[in-house]
Design a protein around this nucleic acid. Structure first.
Lengths: 316, 316
DNA sequence: ACCTATTATGCTCACCATGAGCATTTATGA
DNA sequence: TCATAAATGCTCATGGTGAGCATAATAGGT
């Protein structure tokens, strides 16, 4: 059965981009409409691949050269159709990493970039337990749990909340799962698509909302990036050519949303052979001057190898 | 900028499925057309999500209940368009795991299922170095390396071959990368889409070919599954309700394509608390009878947690 | 010229996961 | 009864990882 070529249907394809840069030690995403939309546009069929199409589109519209690009997910939920005409929309989302200068012009922040923790304040554990978790998220989740009349449902809700939001075993990779749990609990109602974003009458919405399902796409991108920095040297796509190990650690902490052990971080970095000294030092931030390093691009090829979790056997 | 609703374009959306089952200790995929096609069909817009649409489609057409389902990738290369009409095709592929009985009816194999190693013979290291690697793949790759006139290109080719195909550091996860390298080297020319599959005049084609880019999609599925079994208990979706640890090991070995250390495998399984004894034993295969186990489905929830590779710091 | 605060850097230690292999148990079949 | 086969139990060496002590090299104040 060859691919079907019959019955043309009114389907629109849209590309969405989660463009990430590190500005002022904060992970920021490029947005439109005062932060309520991710860059997105119609799919134009005149590019050899989706990826080059997206790259061209982004660079044309934002004047930001794109470094690393990776496909995130393809969404085609029916709820998206209702948001516009009756037409079905299939949206293909991408994650892109780019380099941004620290503050430009008159010290003002370029309008399009927003810290991603604006949308997910409970995901930032760099300064300890985030305030919004204890003050907003958990109380409302508890209310949601108790709202279930069926005891089995209540137990299930309690367990899922426990797994995804427990402080003791916080897993920074579960960004998407946590968002979807909050969505199910009705705490991020903008994802439905129809409600005006800044409605003052809206119930307890946690974190800044976005139009359509763009916040879910953003959550997907953050989750993917957080998972990826653990086994692929992608942080360097966000760093300037030369950097200190301290700056590198701040970058990883910003992405992962949690503090790292400094000495162990350097041990990890240099035993992996990811960087080499430039010879220069930087005396930026008080204290002893730090050596400057640069990323060893050569290892991008070598590093195809990742660790395994299976009990191997070489002899047979 | 809201999603574009103008300019309807002739775009067709197609779903592809990599359906995997374990039959006779072999990883098998459901195919059509004598193994030359993956199950695929047009996207029908009357399902709430792509996933439920695919699930319904597969179950209706194959009568196989689908267990685990996961989106693989969305392809929209221009080369696909040329394969049919001039129409642009966007294909969304899924990985699905299902349970199959061991041999049915009169001992014959159901026609649709094919061992995936038929398409990727160099990926099966269970019995030591696969014959096709030394006999076919490596010689032709070496020829491809030497065919480069530019010495820089030759060095680059040599390095990439070394990384992906080195016996000493074989990484079973790199199925897709290896396939794409072979494709680039012109050793799997069917992926172009136009050449008839069984052309006897075709140059050295390695492994069984498929139409269009279905072999690439299959490689994507295998790679994803091999990576996933290392940190998620998905093997159990392919196992019968009760099984011995020996059978479980054979299943993982079949998927990973390499032998595992038996004692360490059991240690890994039970220290993870993945299974529990049923109390019964099985005296199937000579030797001492083996205890029967069943998967502890409860842990599917708990197991949201995965390991981290970052040097954490809890104190601050 | 000291003293202190601050960051960078070097090093040690305990613990655990993992690869490897020896040994024992319990079945079948010659 | 003995050989063979598979399951199961256990030990050992190694390396990665979390944690923290100690030292080095700056700036700024007194």
């Amino acid at each position: 059965m060859p691919p079907a070529a019959n019955r043309p249907r009114p389907i629109a394809i849209e590309l969405n981009a989660v463009l990430v840069a590190l500005i002022d030690e904060e992970p920021q995403v490029l947005t439109l409409e005062e932060g309520a939309l991710l860059p997105s546009g119609p799919f134009e069929g005149d590019h050899p691949t989706l990826q080059t199409g997206l790259r061209a589109w982004v660079e044309r519209h934002t004047h930001h050269p794109l470094g690393y690009v990776e496909q995130l997910y393809t969404f085609a939920d029916r709820s998206r159709a209702a948001a516009t005409s009756g037409r079905r929309i299939v949206s293909i989302s991408y994650l892109g990493l780019t380099r941004e200068l620290t503050r430009e012009g008159a010290g003002g922040r370029e309008p399009g970039w927003q810290s991603w923790y604006r949308y997910f304040p409970w995901e930032d554990w760099r300064g300890g337990t985030p305030a919004s978790l204890a003050r907003q998220v958990m109380p409302r989740l508890r209310r949601w749990i108790d709202a279930a009349t069926n005891p089995a449902v209540r137990r299930s809700r309690r367990q899922r909340v426990e797994i995804n939001f427990a402080e003791a075993s916080w897993n920074e990779d579960l960004v998407l799962q946590r968002y979807e749990l909050l969505y199910e609990a009705g705490l991020v109602p903008e994802a439905g698509g129809r409600r005006p974003v800044a409605d003052p009458l809206a119930p307890a919405v946690i974190g800044a909302p976005m139009h359509y399902d763009h916040r879910r796409i953003l959550a997907t991108g953050i989750a993917r990036l957080r998972a990826k920095i653990k086994y692929r040297p992608v942080v360097f796509e966000l760093m300037p050519p030369d950097f200190t190990l301290g700056q590198l650690q701040l970058a990883v902490e910003a992405l992962a949303g949690r503090p790292l052990h400094k000495q162990n971080f350097r041990r990890l970095i240099d035993q992996q052979g990811l960087v080499e000294e430039t010879g220069a030092v930087s005396a930026e931030t008080g204290g002893r001057p730090a050596k400057l390093y640069r990323f060893r691009r050569e290892i991008l090829l070598e590093r195809a190898v990742a660790g395994t979790k299976l009990p191997l056997s070489r002899t047979s």
